[in-house]
Amino acid sequence: MDLAKRWRQKPAYYRLEGQRHRTSGEVRFPPQPPRVGESVEEWEAYPLQGTGEIYSFAGVRAAATEYEAQTPYLVALVRLDEGLLVSAQLTDCDEAELQIGQRVEMVTRRMSDTGPDGLLVYAYKFRPVLR
């Protein structure tokens, strides 16, 4: 993936930072540019708690090239405690032990390796709550 795009999205990828609308209180993730007619000031950076529950999950055995070395791996839709639905990889767990509604927490992990002359990409994943 484009390095500049990853770099721009660091707060979202590294620490699950979203945005909150200063007047309506609406929270969104990932951060987006202002809509047409909105000023930049209307949305502020908003750190999400990083906790939620599994809404749905699936095992990936045939992956996109960037993730081939990691197969098989698990993906999920996670309903964050702030109400948002986020898609992410799951880590540190086995498919057989997962359940819909299970509590999960965000961890920052190595997402992909773009090769010996490329950057390492770090991003959020979710795992079953440690304790």
């Binding site: 961890v107 992990r109 190595r110 390492l120 770090y122 994943k125």
Partner: peptide
């Protein structure tokens, strides 16, 4: 370490 872990990810946690 798992496939998605290294010195940086462990330091973060």
């Amino acid at each position: 370490p798992g496939l998605d872990e290294d010195t940086i990810t462990m330091s973060i946690e």
